[in-house]
């Protein structure tokens, strides 16, 4: 059985600034990282591998340099990495992206059964949380989002039981395979690659599939296949706060004012 894990290379958003004139992200000089939620997805896939011996395939849609992200998954222990890269995939919104990823998973399923697909709950650049569910919809898989614990994967009964982390509560749910999970940070602690695995992955082959391989209608993918457009992106103006109390000379008084304010705004539970 294959476990497919979807990863994305994202700009390190703590270092991203927005060009005030063009309203676009200034990407120059900003380092790329693996979308943090995806690292937990990779870890979960590897735990399935450790426990059940499934093969783990990491896939990513992105420009050629997104290869680094896949290498990291290989360093952690993924068996195979596929980069979906083609100019016609570019400019995609979540719908077009999920189509390409779903097509790749479908292609993989011709080689071996895909039992589980795992994604991070969202990416830190787009923050839509739509791609995972989009893939499940396109593949007609059950979808379990916001998973913070996997209780049981029963391969013979072909069922999975997980816990979902919702606002203020947990939900225990069960679904038949094949299934798509989107995961939150609380799920696990990603493993740190050993040096041997890092060196191994540096030379490992990352397969590149373009649309010639997937054979999708170019009008349904990329910019052309994207019904959503970003009209503007901007940093919200921050209202300037006021200085209260005198922290330098009366720290206790200042702390008291702060606590009162927080209680007033219902930020502190009493």
């Amino acid at each position: 059985m294959l476990v497919v894990v979807c990863v994305k290379q994202v700009p390190d958003t703590t270092q991203v600034q927005i060009d005030p004139v063009t309203n676009t992200l200034i990407r120059e000089g900003v380092p790329f990282i693996v979308n943090p939620y995806d690292t937990h997805a990779v870890e979960q896939a590897l735990r399935f591998k450790d426990r059940y011996g499934c093969r783990v395939v990491a896939i990513s849609m992105g420009p050629p340099n997104a290869e680094a992200t896949l290498r990291k998954a290989l360093a952690q222990g993924a068996d195979r990495a596929v980069l979906l890269s083609d100019r016609v995939f570019g400019g995609a919104d979540t719908l077009a992206t999920s189509k390409v990823l779903a097509a790749a998973i479908e292609r993989l399923s011709k080689e071996d059964e895909v039992g589980v697909v795992i994604c991070g709950k969202q990416t830190i650049d787009g923050d839509t949380a739509q791609v995972g569910p989009g893939i499940a919809t396109r593949l007609n898989f059950a979808q379990l989002t916001l998973v913070d614990r996997v209780d049981e994967l029963d391969l013979s009964a072909r069922r999975i039981k997980v816990s979902r982390k919702l606002e203020g509560r947990h939900e225990h749910v069960e679904a038949p395979l094949p299934v798509l999970l989107t995961v939150v940070r609380e799920l696990n602690r990603p493993r740190y690659p050993t040096v041997a695995m890092r060196l191994e992955s540096a030379d490992a082959k990352v397969e590149v599939w373009d649309n010639g391989v997937l054979g999708l209608d170019v009008n349904t993918i990329g910019l052309k296949g994207s019904p959503t457009w970003v009209s503007r992106i901007f940093s919200p103006e921050r209202a300037k706060g006021e200085m209260l109390g005198d922290g330098a000379h009366d720290p206790e008084g200042a702390a008291q004012i702060l606590i009162d304010k927080m209680i007033e705004k219902d930020l502190l539970a009493l």
């Binding site: 602690r189 990603p190 493993r191 740190y192 690659p193 050993t194 040096v195 041997a196």
Partner: peptide
Amino acid sequence: LVETESKFPEELLNLF
């Protein structure tokens, strides 16, 4: 422990 076993106190993962 770090390079071969990848075993270290949890806090260090963030640091690394």
